[in-house]
Design a protein around this nucleic acid. Structure first.
Length: 460
DNA sequence: GGTACCCGTGCT
DNA sequence: AGCACGGGTACC
């Protein structure tokens, strides 16, 4: 396949609305969708908009619609419409609510994304397809970055834009990444600096979709962007190696199988795409390890940053909280440290750590129960943000324990982010729920049945 | 006319 | 320069 980067082609993705506030919006989207689905389409739209406006504040209906359909629906694939017109919460949403692993959510998206796809309006799908665009662009970029680092080359956002994401030859698939690197190297040596620009258009028209694609790789914890220079996160080598192997594989969803000029087939195309994109391969579950976040703090959080053995943090953050809690209690009264006990391995207690209050006052030596809830995300949470919202799922046992122990019960919400750990402590969630500063809602149904409830027994 | 990606434009 | 509101616009 010949490679001539002068053959430029504008290949867009849906323009984001949720990057700066993503840490609030992604959990919110997920929670809202899971809460109100399954639901008829019109009801879904109504309720989604109502709930989202509580978070975004004063919002125009059209903006809410755009969040719902473009970001949560098309780009994030968080729900789909079934044959009966019912909106269903997708596998991707449910997995995220299960594991609270935001980088893994974006790994799924980066792995599954392709050009052309069913997120565009049909004229744009047809334009991409008829120009021969056919690529899994995220694996391709990763492959290119792996090879470039082997050559000691650091690529810039502008270079990825011009030589890759806006190059028709690359977008058509199968241009060997090493050929692209050769070209970039020789242009660099000749002092040529290329950048995507469209005359008469603002930079957002030519670059925003390119910047945002790289942002999503960063949100997936696979790359870091520093001053426009891109580097791989080598603590994610396993995922990078797995994904980059797909650089020259055909896109999984075959757009060519549909005649998009035909309205019936076009409708089928969008239906099939949404089902494909929002579902997850059962054998393929992306995760984000604590190690890959490269956390460099010590549990006391006293300012001096040291590299800790990430094994001490543990995948669930419980050991980290244990160390944190021991340090906290110790600095109050070192004799009380022996009362800080990890009980997370014991099922059914409704808490992970038994500690002591260790605050001035008559209750200082009273027992305190701590439930640890960990999430992984890419930015450090900011509690001063007025739109702050977060959700944790509690088991029945945990809520019973909160009700029983009241002010002697706390939830420690742990945020594992690149280089950092942040803990929000929520004391006495049960009373807070009564006062309305917290909203606790039962969501699980458990079906117990006996032989009298069985209608038939089927066996081979 | 209504819906929903597309993208000008202005805010940070 | 980055990014998202909400009007723009093409297709239903």
């Amino acid at each position: 396949m010949t490679y001539n980067p002068a053959r430029q082609f504008r290949c867009t993705i849906i323009r984001g609305k949720a990057k700066n506030a993503l840490d609030n919006l992604l959990p919110a989207y997920a929670k809202i969708i899971s809460d109100i689905c399954p639901s008829p389409k019109d009801q879904f739209a109504l309720q989604f908009n109502e709930r989202l406006s509580e978070i975004l504040g004063e919002s125009v209906e059209k903006t809410l619609n755009n969040h719902r359909t473009e970001i949560a629906g098309k780009f994030f694939g968080m729900y789909y419409e079934d044959v009966h017109g019912t909106i269903i919460s997708s596998d991707r949403t449910e997995k995220y609510l299960e594991d609270s692993d935001q980088p893994a959510f974006f790994k799924d998206i980066c792995f599954k994304f392709q050009f052309p796809n069913g997120m565009d309006k049909s004229e744009n799908v047809i334009e991409k397809f008829s120009n021969g665009v056919s690529i899994r662009q995220f694996p391709y970029i990763l492959k290119l970055l792996v090879l470039s680092e082997q050559r000691g080359l650091r690529l810039t956002k502008d270079e990825i834009g011009y030589y890759v994401l806006n190059s028709l030859d690359v977008l058509s698939g199968r241009v060997d990444p090493s050929v692209v690197l050769d070209f970039i190297t020789s242009d660099r040596n000749a002092g040529i600096k290329k950048k995507v620009t469209v005359t008469g258009k603002a930079s957002s028209y030519s670059m925003q979709h390119i910047n945002e694609q790289l942002n999503y790789l960063e949100l997936a914890n696979l790359i870091r962007i520093d001053n426009k220079i891109i580097s791989l996160n080598h603590r994610e080598n396993e995922t990078i190696s797995f994904m980059s192997d797909y650089w020259n594989k055909d896109p999984e969803f075959n757009v060519g199988g549909y005649n998009l000029k035909d309205s019936v087939q076009r409708k089928q195309f969008y239906f099939d795409w949404q089902l494909f994109y929002s579902s997850l391969n059962k054998e393929l579950k992306f995760t984000t390890s604590v190690d890959s976040l490269n956390i460099k703090v010590q549990p006391s959080g006293n300012g001096t940053s040291v590299i800790v053995d990430t094994n001490l943090i543990g995948e669930e953050g419980e050991n980290f909280v244990l160390q944190f809690e021991k340090n906290r209690v110790s600095s109050f009264d070192h004799r009380l440290v022996r009362k800080v006990i990890y009980l997370g391995k014991t099922r059914g207690l409704g808490f992970d750590i038994q500690s002591v209050i260790a605050e001035p006052g008559e209750y200082s030596e009273f027992v305190k129960y701590i439930e640890v809830k960990t999430t992984k995300r890419v930015t450090v949470p900011d509690p001063r943000d007025p739109s702050w919202i977060d959700t944790v799922n509690l088991t029945r046992n945990e809520w019973v324990a909160a009700a029983q122990h009241r002010k002697y019960y706390s939830i420690y919400r742990v945020y594992l982010t690149p280089e950092n750990v942040t803990i929000f402590t929520i004391n006495d969630p049960y009373t807070k729920d009564e006062e309305g500063t917290i909203r606790c809602k039962p969501i699980n149904y458990r079906l117990d049945f006996t032989n009298s409830s069985i209608d038939s027994v089927l066996s081979s």
